[in-house]
Design a protein around this nucleic acid. Structure first.
Length: 671
DNA sequence: GTTGCGTTTATTTTT
DNA sequence: TAAACGCAAC
């Protein structure tokens, strides 16, 4: 029996309203995941077949959390495993694995990441004889991505360059039998929209649909959800318009704003009781976001007391900011007996993290940096994965090209060019061209031989990897055969560097072994490759960071919470962020970002503002963020940083701080 | 290939 | 400031 007694009335209503469209406006810290999890359990209890339940979210982290909590709550692991709890993109993969042949792609399509995509954009540009100097391939890729997110085909593009590059890119992707992340939503939409039997299958399968973080959906995701849900209308979306911070990536806040208009008979429930932040913090957050236009008006409340005041620290420069934060952190940890993992330092731009890293390292405080270079983006890891992809499906042209001469085996640009020409003449795949060297008259005998032995190597291990379910073991043997480790040591004369890279490859192998171990017969190489494409953090060693301070961007912090939050650089220019030139900023979104940051804090919130900051090597005077204007003095404790290294004299410093205080005098007099 | 130098540019990035 | 990139020369 699902116990609903510890839910508040709104939460309970959200859980038990199972039929028809439902919009749950879940304020920050209002127990949204709890509602989703209870709702799933409630549906099961009402006898709904788990196969008919779908819950979608954006991140793997959110999905894992749902899975764990559902498993804890439902006393039937067999039932729970039949649920579809997935990210948008893995749902897309699921649909495509079943139905993509209708669109002329192979069932074992590859999923290309940004690096692969860029390579194909460049190739498309080359084919059109467009110099990649005149137009940034990155920018064109973004245009293509935006177009797909808006569900637009190449033909619909008004800009002729975008139209042609987009078309060429799509052709190249198809030639490789590959799709990109945007296609994982776009193509399922095409299938569901155009193929009645596809629609019938999936819409019939998922009869109770929940979407998490609905404010972040883009038009194609909206369409996917709509197509799945329009027949039965049992669509429950959960989100918070105040936390929409990904507009720049194509999410459309109007999806959540217009939901009641788009789905007739929508029931709207607001969850406004906050279980996370103490009173002062919550009030500040309420005041900051109240300024926002066109929002569902709501005011979060809490039963917990006022708690601590919000600390606003004024410092001279960013150096001092880092020092003061790290000092405060240290002090608080010991005074309040906290763990390192109770702390997080947040900032608007990744560049700000460096100073904090330095200071934390200096103090021997363990930290984890969220973001930064991703494991699967490292060159050596990409190379190793390209081998794996080649073994799985040599039609994956980019993968083959990546490793055909790595480590060096004497297949140089001339040979490649001649293979290219053969490929074009025959209209075959690149790998087929490699296999048919005997029919390629351009190739010298020596060239033929080197290519032949490459193909032999691949074919040998392809057979092995197909016949042995322990693909990790085969792959390990393969890497030894091509002497990748040996090559890495040769390639990098810096020994530490080489070691790091070897370690990364080992970590990849480790992950593979773990996967094979965990999934036994259920797993497969295909599934493993999907997994590493769709969950780039899968290989991260969580253990190592069990007890560390979290350094994270404000964007990255959404969905997290910490007893202690430091937000650095609460200044005009950083929050809101001013771009050096060109584009107009979305002030509303910047405000929401600030709101997201504030609402991460459970008990202590430290904001800091620096009077000067070096920007592009130039020292700049800074002024406090306009978002601070909404926080009245009674919620704040304003302090200048305790003395630390700084070139300016004490008098200068005090003068500056006092001028700052007069700047925000209105705040102090606001009580 | 790779090294080195001059040039350019400077958010946020769930998948 | 600094890192990332492109290009020329080895």
């Amino acid at each position: 029996m699902v116990n609903l007694s510890h839910l508040n009335p709104e939460q309970r209503e959200a859980v038990t309203h199972t039929k028809g469209p439902l919009l749950i406006l879940a304020g920050a810290g209002s127990g949204k995941t709890r509602v989703i999890v209870h709702r799933v359990a409630y549906l099961l209890e009402k006898g709904v077949d788990p196969e008919h339940i779908l819950a979608v979210s954006f991140t793997n982290r959110a999905v894992r959390e749902m899975e764990e909590r559902v498993a804890d709550m439902v006393n039937a692991p067999k039932l729970a495993r039949k649920l579809t709890l997935s990210t948008f993109h893995s749902l897309g993969v699921k649909i495509l694995r079943r139905n993509i042949s209708n669109l002329g792609y192979p069932k074992k399509f590859a999923i290309y990441d940004q690096g692969d995509q860029l390579a194909l954009v460049k190739r498309a540009m080359q084919n059109l004889r467009v110099s990649d100097k005149e137009f940034e391939p990155k920018q064109l890729l973004e245009e293509i991505s935006n177009a797909k997110n808006r569900l637009e085909s190449p033909e619909e593009q008004t800009d002729s360059l975008v139209r042609e590059v987009y078309a060429g890119y799509q052709t190249a992707m198809k030639h490789c039998g590959a799709v990109d992340f945007d296609d994982l939503i776009y193509l399922p939409v095409v299938l569901l929209r155009d193929e009645p039997e596809v629609k019938e299958y999936w819409a019939g399968r998922y009869r109770y649909i929940m979407v998490d973080e609905y404010q972040d959906t883009n038009p194609s995701q909206f369409e996917l959800v709509r197509l799945l849900a329009d027949i039965h209308g049992n669509l429950c979306v959960v989100g918070d318009d105040d936390q929409s911070i990904y507009g720049w990536r194509g999410s459309d806040i109007e999806n959540i704003r217009q939901f009641p208009k788009q789905f007739e008979g929508t029931k709207t429930i607001m969850l406004t009781q906050n279980y996370r932040c103490s009173g002062n913090i919550l009030e500040a957050a309420n005041l900051v976001i109240a300024e926002s236009a066109d929002r569902y008006p709501k005011r979060l409340w809490t039963e917990s007391g006022d708690g601590q005041k919000i600390n606003l620290t004024v410092v001279q420069n960013e150096e001092e900011e880092a020092t003061s934060i790290v000092n405060k952190l240290h002090q608080l940890k010991f005074d309040k007996n906290l763990k390192w993992s109770d702390f997080s330092i947040m900032y608007r731009t990744n560049a700000q993290s460096r100073l904090f890293e330095e200071k934390l390292r200096g103090e021997r405080i363990p930290y984890k940096l969220v973001g930064g270079q991703k494991f699967f983006e490292r060159r050596e890891v990409r190379d190793a994965v390209a081998y794996l992809r080649t073994l799985q499906r040599p039609e994956d042209e980019l993968a083959v090209r990546r490793i055909i001469n790595y480590p060096n085996r004497g297949i140089g640009p001339t040979t490649i060019e001649r293979l290219n020409q053969y490929m074009e003449r025959r209209g075959c795949t690149f790998y087929t061209a490699c296999q048919q060297t005997d029919q390629n008259e351009d190739l010298s005998k020596a060239q033929q031989n080197t290519v032949d032995s490459f193909v032999e190597l691949i074919e040998e291990y392809r057979k092995k990897i197909q016949s042995n379910p322990n693909f990790a073991e085969v792959f390990k043997e393969f890497l030894q055969e091509v002497r990748l480790t040996h090559h890495l040591y040769k390639e990098y004369d810096n020994l530490t560097e080489a070691k790091r890279r070897v370690e990364n490859v080992d970590a990849l192998l480790n992950g593979m072994f773990q996967y094979v171990e965990k999934f036994k017969d259920e797993g497969s190489l295909d599934d493993y490759l999907d997994r590493i494409c769709l969950d780039q953090n899968d290989n991260k060693d969580e253990e190592e960071f069990q007890n560390s301070v979290t350094l994270i961007t404000l964007h990255g912090s959404k969905g997290l919470e910490f007893p202690v939050v430091f937000i650095a650089g609460v200044e005009e220019g950083l929050m809101p962020y001013f771009r050096t030139s060109g584009w107009t900023m979305d002030l509303e979104e910047e405000r929401r970002l600030c709101y997201v940051g504030i609402t991460r804090a459970k008990q202590w919130l430290f904001l800091s503002y620096s009077m000067e900051r070096r920007r592009f090597g130039q020292l700049e005077e800074r002024s406090p963020s306009r978002f601070l204007d909404q926080i009245p003095g009674r919620l704040l404790r304003i302090v200048g940083a305790a003395g630390s290294a700084s070139e300016s004299t004490k008098e200068e410093k005090e003068q500056k701080i006092s001028s700052f205080f007069s700047n925000i005098h209105s705040l102090l007099g606001d009580d």
